[in-house]
Design a protein around this nucleic acid. Structure first.
Length: 694
RNA sequence: GCGCCCGUAGCUCAGCUGGAUAGAGCGAACGCCUCCGAAGCGUUAGGUCGUGAGUUCGAAUCUCGCCGGGCGCACCA
């Protein structure tokens, strides 16, 4: 609602400036039409710096201009006043009763249909159990998908599966050469391992992967070289396909992938399509891309220096040394094989529909509401259309920003500048462990590491926390708290609530930090259910629900009580584009005794906290927009927390059920209902559930 | 060596397209349950915004240098 009113204010400001100063909006610095937020709510809800920006051009004092504009803006539907403040800011104050009624009516603008976009996230190597760092990736990606969808985008979620890489090869080496397991043995292991327990196949692979990594570095130099060669040979067998080793790899990677989907499903994270590297290789994606890269001159054959006989791509800002660019990125090796970046260029051309080839598709998994497809060479005739989207977001950790920018540069070099501009590397920093927590987990921490703020986890060393273990630990802790408070609950109730709290706590913790901040994970912080956490937000909402349970009134009834006879609050008022001029025309509202009383309550000092809560509640779509343009879900997480905090304050201060003044009680109940609705919807955007009780 | 990111309260972090007294959580001290659940609420203490210069009427925010920390820079993926 806040966003809609702001857009109307902008539209009206434009017409006023055209009328007053004959300005052509297209010729003017957009900053003139900026709408900011005053530092304090007491100053108003919006601040217009227009007069400050126009002073020089109009050769008048900012204050005079501000007075003129303020006078011309008045009156305006939804706004109570426009006041000149400071050097020439115009502070706009909302009509408080009006906003309260709008919020109670819950009028939301219909989202216009926006672009088709593709979000790639999770993309865990299918060779071992998911760990804590993967959780950050998947939670960030999944939440961003929720935000995009809420804003009207049609989103396909992809989880890229590198099933032919060295990491899978390492585990295959482990099974074949360390464990001496046959394909049938591995099949039996997979069949015998239950999901979610320590006996799971992905856990087994976790240990084998760590052992193989250790094994590579043992023995004489000759032995080590032989092991390296074994690793390389295995990798080539996987890439080539059609042999016993690649079949074993397929078996292993698919089983681990299924476990990853189970792990993520616990948090409500689902996928639409799983493109695999094996198909990118076998369906000759690279060959198509190579032709186009050569034709556009992005790649050239190096004839001199260390990269002789390689096809290379010039890096951004690379310097030539005597006509030779030795810093160029090798895309095709001198032996004719393609590097990782090369394959990635082909894959991303496919994403934008620029490749001229497609995957085969078959169904891999069925979720309650949709199916998840996986790539294959010869798939179903009927399948959804993936790829060919307008914008993409790749949730990939910040260490990969170089290869990511190489891909973008290749697209740009081929002339696909529009695509390059809409390619977002949604980068994020790693999740590490605090030294203290690493010790708690039983790892030996060196004295040097103890001084650090955090220690990086390493799948190679088997050092870290597995995602499923972490969730189990958090559920157990939440369960302890729940049991303390509700001795009379059934087992099912305790289970459900504990899971809602634990998963909410985890998702919130991964989202509350901005993307480029390293998260130093500590069990104590993660399990904390006080402070800026998911459970705090959930608790606020549960308190709101309790009010209605006791009052014998539903939130819907409370909202209707305030919204009634509010013609102006009808959704249609806001359904059309706010840019349209007719919306900016001043209209006068019908006055009523009830509205006057509302205005009095909300306007006084006593009502300041109620007003602050209502304004906060009105900002969901505004914060959603901010989160989207900056690709930063943390803003919405912060919004949820602030809502919860202001509601807790309100809850403490006003004893709604004892309120004797009927109009006041109606307002308080409606405010609680608005806060409840907004808390639930904001948490929904973050993928966090709202418990009934806790 | 080159590139990217970071340095804000004891700790963990917001704020960074320049603008109205620098914010939050944790931790610390104190206070609040005959009243919708105290997993809560309130009050207080705590900051030369790494450092030096520059641009500007105005800099935590922009530019440059320096110091400290992290990560990239393979014919690995």
């Amino acid at each position: 609602m806040y966003l809609e009113l702001q857009q109307r204010l902008t539209a009206r400001l434009k017409t006023v400036l055209v009328d007053l100063y004959k300005l052509q909006p297209s010729d003017v610095d957009p900053a003139v039409f900026a709408v900011e937020q005053p530092p304090e709510l007491a100053f108003g809800e919006y601040a217009l710096p227009a007069a400050l920006k126009l002073a020089r051009a109009l050769r008048k004092s900012p204050k005079m201009i501000a007075e003129e504009i303020a006078a011309a803006l008045t009156p305006m539907e939804g706004f109570a006043s426009f006041e000149v403040a400071g050097a020439g800011y115009i502070n706009a104050k909302l009509d408080r009763a009006h906003l309260a009624k709008l919020l109670a009516a819950g009028a939301e603008r219909e989202q216009p249909k926006r672009d088709r976009v593709l979000v790639e996230h999770t993309s865990i190597n299918p060779n071992k159990a998911a760990h804590i760092g993967h959780l950050r990736n998947a939670i960030l990606g999944d939440t961003f998908v929720l935000l995009l969808r809420a804003a009207g985008h049609s989103v396909a979620v992809q989880n890229y599966i590198d099933n032919t890489g060295v990491q899978v090869a390492d585990v295959v080496v482990g099974f074949e050469h360390l464990e001496k397991k046959s394909k049938a043995d591995v099949q039996a292991l997979i069949a015998g391992s239950g999901g979610g327990s320590r006996k799971s196949f992905d856990y087994l692979c976790w240990d084998i992967y760590a052992r193989v990594s250790q094994w590579y570095s043992e023995g004489t130099l000759e032995e080590q070289a032989a092991k390296k060669q074994l690793r390389l040979d295995t990798l080539h067998l996987l890439e080539h396909g059609g042999n016993a080793t690649s079949e074993l790899a397929e078996l292993i990677s698919t089983a681990v992938l299924r476990r990853h989907l189970e792990t993520m499903a616990r948090l409500g994270i689902e996928y639409d399509f799983l493109p695999r590297e094996s198909e990118i290789l076998h369906l000759k994606f690279w060959e198509s891309a190579f032709e186009k890269l050569k034709a556009t001159g992005v790649l050239y054959l190096e004839t001199e220096g260390k990269n002789k006989n390689c096809w290379v791509m010039r890096r951004m800002g690379a310097e030539m040394n005597e006509g030779l660019d030795e810093d160029a990125k090798v895309i095709v090796r001198s032996n004719g094989t393609v590097t990782y970046v090369g394959k990635d260029i082909a894959y991303h051309m496919w994403k934008f529909g620029l490749l001229g080839r497609d995957f085969g598709y078959k169904i891999f998994h069925t979720y309650p509401t949709h199916t998840c497809w996986i790539s294959c060479e010869h798939g179903e005739k009927e399948h959804p259309h993936f790829g060919g989207v307008e914008a993409i977001y790749n949730v990939i950790d910040s260490r990969q920003s170089d290869p990511q920018s190489n891909v973008i540069q290749a697209l740009r070099g081929m002339g696909h500048t529009a695509e390059a501009d809409r390619y977002t590397h949604f980068s994020y920093e790693m999740v590490a462990l605090t030294p203290r927590y690493a010790e708690e987990l039983g790892y030996t921490v060196s004295d040097e590491d103890k001084k650090k703020a955090y220690i990086e986890v390493s799948g190679r060393k088997g050092f870290g926390v597995k995602a499923d273990d972490l969730m189990d630990l958090m559920i157990a802790a939440a369960r302890g708290e729940t049991l303390k408070r509700h001795t009379d609950w059934s087992e099912a109730e305790v289970d459900k609530t504990s899971e809602q709290i634990a998963y909410g706590a985890l998702r919130y913790f991964m989202l509350r930090f901005t993307r480029n901040s390293v998260i130093a994970f500590d069990q104590k912080d993660a399990l904390a259910i006080e402070g800026e956490t998911g459970p705090y937000v959930q608790y606020a909402l549960v308190r709101a629900k309790n009010i209605f349970r006791k009052a014998g009134v539903t939130p819907e009834e409370a909202l209707a009580g305030l919204a009634e006879n509010a013609e102006l609050a009808k959704p249609t008022v806001l359904a059309e584009s706010a840019e349209k001029a007719e919306l900016a025309k001043p209209t006068v509202l019908a006055e009523s005794a009830e509205k006057a009383e509302l205005a009095k309550t909300l306007g006084g000092d006593e009502g300041a906290d109620i007003w602050a809560l209502l304004v906060r509640a009105s900002k969901r779509s505004f914060v959603l927009e901010q989160s989207l343009v900056s690709s930063e879900p943390a803003y919405l997480a912060k919004h949820a927390f602030q809502m919860a905090q202001e509601f807790s304050n309100f809850y403490h201060k006003h004893h709604i059920l004892n309120e004797e003044n009927e109009t006041r009680k109606k307002l308080l109940l409606a405010t609680a209902a608005i806060a409840l609705r907004e808390l639930v919807k904001t948490l929904e955007l973050l993928g966090i559930e709202a418990p009934e009780m806790m």
